[in-house]
Design a protein around this nucleic acid. Structure first.
Length: 302
DNA sequence: AACCAGGCTGCGC
DNA sequence: GCGCAGCATGGT
């Protein structure tokens, strides 16, 4: 492999590639990347061009191999920015660990999940579609639905006998038929929401820049929840996963509630005041804490 | 086989 | 502003 296809991104303190890849994999079947023990392969779009990347960890840096796509300096910069955002490489998470260590029932996370970063979904349209898909259905089924959507409407790159999928463009889903989605076992509501969101993107009234330009979290939440199919959970989920608003909490999230019960922070899922008071101790790290709670739910097999 | 799932909308109060 | 039924469909 010629060197001009390689990119190296230095790693911050408190980063674990193994923890991040393990979380990406968990026990689910995500069609947006391929993971083995030591590498991630993923197709991405930056600057309106597609790239297939192989990501590995070397000494103190991530090594990105551009398996497909051009290797101009401009592209490399965009890929570096994408990876940095995806793995949240720019953040010092030691202050978060300091807060965790103050709580006896959470301190173990600093060791057990050490170096886990809040993995993002850089594309807002994908994040919103994924949220709608995941609403009120189990994750196993949700990943199945996503796979069907991506296979039917997305594009893909081919490399060494394998497909690498790129999430459908909003233009494509804006023009999709309800009946086709429903034939893939999307509920009628989910098809309406997804097509509606796709149309808003195509009209240019909703995108990452629009949300980023809003002054505070409540303005961002309102802009999102004004869309049909986006409630408080979805708004906060994408603020956390895509916009990296550190204080967003996906209120009502069933996984979060489960974890709060398991850590004996609440007894009943209705104790919202208690939850609010608890999170006040983690100001600025709320979304990280939620992410670590999700991590705590997933069990390693062996 | 009943109960649950990374919720949301629309309605009644 | 708050509570709640109805939704829609696979997993466990």
């Amino acid at each position: 492999m010629s060197d001009d296809r390689l990119l190296r991104i230095p790693l911050p303190q408190q980063f674990s590639f193994a923890e991040c890849t393990w979380f990406l994999n968990r026990n689910y079947d995500d069609c947006m990347h391929t993971i083995s023990d030591t590498e991630i392969k993923k197709a991405i779009v930056v600057n309106n061009a597609t790239f297939l990347l192989r990501i590995t960890e070397q000494n103190n840096h991530l090594e990105i191999e551009i398996l497909q796509g051009d290797t101009s300096a401009r592209s490399k910069n965009a890929i570096t920015a994408y990876i940095t955002e995806w793995f949240d490489l720019g953040r010092d998470i030691e202050p978060f660990y300091k807060l965790l260590r103050k709580n006896k029932s959470l301190a173990y996370m600093c060791d057990d999940f050490n170096g886990l970063r809040l993995l993002s979904i850089p594309d807002l349209f994908e994040a919103l579609c994924w949220s709608v898909i995941g609403q009120q259905i189990n994750l196993t089924f949700a990943y199945k639905l996503k796979r069907r959507l991506v296979a039917r409407y997305g594009t893909k790159l081919f490399f060494e006998e394998q497909d690498y999928h790129i999430f459908p463009a909003h233009e494509i889903l804006a023009a999709a038929n309800k009946e086709d989605l429903m034939a893939m076992q999307f509920s009628e509501k989910k098809t309406e929401y997804i097509i509606g969101i796709a149309k808003a993107f195509s009209a240019g009234v909703l995108n990452k820049e629009v949300i980023a330009a809003l002054p505070d979290i409540s303005a961002k939440q309102k802009a999102l929840t004004d869309m049909k199919g986006i409630g408080t959970w979805t708004a906060n989920y994408v603020l956390m996963k895509t916009m990296r608003v550190q204080e967003s909490i996906p209120h009502g999230d069933i996984g979060l509630l489960q974890a709060l019960q398991q850590h004996k922070i609440i007894k009943e899922r209705t104790e919202t005041d208690k939850i609010d008071r608890f999170f006040k101790k983690y100001k600025g790290w709320e979304s990280y804490l939620v992410f670590y709670f999700w991590r705590s739910l997933a069990v390693r097999n062996g």
